[in-house]
Every structure is written in C-alpha cells, then in structure tokens.
Simulated scan of single mutants.
Amino acid sequence: MSAPNSDYDPVEVTPLRADEVERMRDAALEAIAAADSVEALKQVKIDHVGDRSPLALANREIGALPPQARKEVGQRVGQARGAVNKALAERTAQVEAVEFERRLAEEAVDVTVPVDMEPVGARHPLTTIQDHVADIFVAMGWEIAEGPEVEAEWLNFDALNLGPDHPARTMMDTFWVAPAEAAMVLRTHTSPVQARTMLTRQPPIYIACPGRVFRTDEPDATHAPVFHQVEGLAIDEGLSMAHLKGTLDHLATAIYGEGTTTRFRPSYFPFTEPSAEVDLLCYVCHNDPAQVADCPTCRGEGWVEWGGCGVVNPRVLIACGVDPERYSGFAFGMGLDRTITSRYDIADLRDLWDGDIRFTEPFGIGL
C-alpha cells in the first residue's frame, strides 16, 4: 500500500501558483470595474465568482494538495476570492445607485399638478329630458303616471277607440307577445297609462305619462323600434281646446325657451275628436321672413312638427268609465327622442342609443 505523496509541490499546479492566482483576481477586478449596468454585473458574477469561474476551479484543486501545502495556498486563493466578492458588492451598490437616480430623472412625476382621479360622468340625455319634462308638469300641478311596457291588447287599442276592425289599428306596427291567446303587446304608445288612470280614479285627472314605447320600425337616422314619448291627459269639467293650446304653449316655452309658440293643424286620431297635429314655431329662425327661407331646421316652413293632440273622444271616456256628459278632456303626445334631436341639432337618432360616451359627455348632468 503506497503512502501519501508528501513531496507534492503546489508550484507545479498552474492554477495555484501565486502569479496565476493574482492574474485571475486582477482579471475579475478589471471586469467588475468595467461593468456599467446591473445586467453587466450579473454576467461578471457568473464569469468570475460563479461555480465555473477560474478562482472557484482553483479552489477545488486545493483538496489534492498535501496537508502541509493546503494552508498557504488556501489563504492565497481565499484572499483573492474575498477581494473579488468585495469589489463586486461595492460596484453593484454604485451601479444600482446610478440607475436609481437615472430612473428618478426619467420617470419624474410632478405631484403638484392637479389631476382628475376619476372622469366626470354624464347622464344620458333621454333620462335628463324625461326628468325635465316631468318637473315642468309637476310645477303645473299635474301628476306623473307610469304603467307596464308589456300591455293588454284591450288597453293598448280597444279602450282607445281602436277596435279589432278599426282601420287605424293597422297603422300601429306592433310587437305581439307570445302566446297569441294572451292578447299582450309591447305598448305602442303610453296612452294605456291614461286608460288605466281613468279606470281607477275619478276626475279631475291631470297626468303626464313619460315612458318607453315599441313599434316594429326599421332603425335609421329618424326611426327606431324603441323610442320615448310623453303624453298628457286632463279630464275635468269644462275643458276645451283653448286649455290644450295654453298647456302646450307653456310646455314648448319651458323646453325650447321664450318666444316659442304652437299651432294646430286639423288631423285624425281615433282617441281624440277633434284632433290636431301640433307644430312648433321654429326655434332657430322664429319664422322671421329675413331668415326662414335659408333655415336648415324648418326648411323654409317656419314651423317644426312636434306631436299630436285633441279633445278626448267620448267613446274613450265611456270605455274607461267617465261620464262624457259631465266631463271633457284633452290629450296630447310627442316624442322625446325627436325633442332632443331637434333641440340639439342631432342629425342621426341612432346616436342616442349607440352607447358612445363621447356623445353623452357634453350633456353633463343636466339639460
């Protein structure tokens, strides 16, 4: 059995020679000093401090030396590795401080600049005009009445003098609710609310009925299958077309401003007799002879179509349990969608329901 090699000379192991250890240390220190970023230092650490670095491999050779040589060589390699680790730590702190200062400069934020943390919301113009119209009627002493959007056929048609064979019934493009024997529809106007009120209350009655209605119209710039109306009903002793005219003039002034008046043109509606179409004095040119010919709003007419109205037909009063010999009344209705598009010169009705917040934001929280 052979004895340990006590004559092993560490000088003959190249990685452990003093000059070679110094060379590896100096190469590592030079690479550390040249590194100018955290990423570069990471690579230097792998190359000169990692498990496969020259100094780490030299350290492994120490175990093969005889005991009497290990101490001196171990101190030599350990001092070199310690110098490299110290230099790496110091250089890393320097580079990180420089990069931190650079980020502070590049990403600086002026915290004194005022900023809106949340965008200011806006109510939809349809909601706002509906509330505005309701406020006008409440200020007149009227009440706001509401009813279901899925309505009985009898209330939507028959109670309003639109019997099964009435020719005007075909004018209503109706959504019918299945099954057919249920005789239910999506209401084509808010007039059923008026019928419900007359059936459950005794005159005098003064109500306004804003709400959503449905007809099978193809959507385009001026039509929609879902739109909004406001209808009014007044039932009392001695009411006439004069009271109707005064009410609509006040409503027009409250919505469109001072100087706005209405005119009536003879028309036909099954639930009123006599009936009239309501026109507004053009709120742009005011039928001024000097401006009306070139007015894009009324197109030279001086008046803008607004809605329909009339004295409540006695047949409707009888169907709803009101004595036509004692009471009379008037009713009217106009589209709220059209009111908005005309008031704000909106060319396409579809802008109201497209959901683009850029359209609603200018309206703010009120009209």
Rank of each mutant, 00 (worst) to 15 (best):
E153A: 00
A152Q: 07
L155T: 00
H132C: 07
F100D: 03
A183Y: 11
E143T: 11
F100T: 00
V138S: 15
G163Q: 15
N156D: 09
F214M: 01
A208W: 15
E101V: 00
T174R: 07
P203K: 07
I205H: 08
W154P: 02
I205T: 03
E146F: 13
A122S: 08
E143R: 14
Q202D: 05
T200F: 11
P125Q: 12
T170Q: 15
W142R: 05
T170G: 13
G121A: 02
A105Y: 07
P167M: 04
H166Q: 03
T174Y: 10
T200N: 12
V185R: 04
A208G: 03
A108T: 10
N161G: 12
T112L: 11
G211D: 04
E107N: 10
G147D: 01
G211S: 01
E181W: 09
N161D: 13
T112E: 13
C209I: 02
R102I: 02
V120G: 11
V109K: 15
G163P: 14
M184A: 06
V111Y: 15
L186F: 05
R123D: 09
V138Y: 14
P204E: 10
R196I: 00
P125R: 12
D131L: 10
V115C: 05
L126P: 05
M198C: 04
M171W: 13
E106C: 00
A168L: 09
L155P: 01
M172Q: 15
R187G: 03
F214Y: 13
S191A: 06
P179A: 01
M140E: 15
P219E: 05
T174A: 09
A122N: 09
R123A: 10
V109M: 08
L104F: 08
A180N: 13
P148H: 11
N156K: 04
N156E: 03
R215C: 02
V133C: 07
D116M: 06
P167Y: 14
V111Q: 13
M140D: 14
E146C: 11
M171L: 13
I129Y: 15
V177Q: 06
E218W: 15
A139Q: 11
L162F: 11
A195E: 05
E101P: 07
V109T: 02
D217M: 00
F100E: 03
D131Q: 13
P219K: 06
V193H: 10
H189Y: 08
M140N: 13
L186V: 03
M172L: 08
A183F: 10
E151F: 06
P210E: 11
I136M: 12
D173F: 07
T197N: 08
G141Q: 08
I144Y: 12
F157S: 01
H166T: 00
P192E: 04
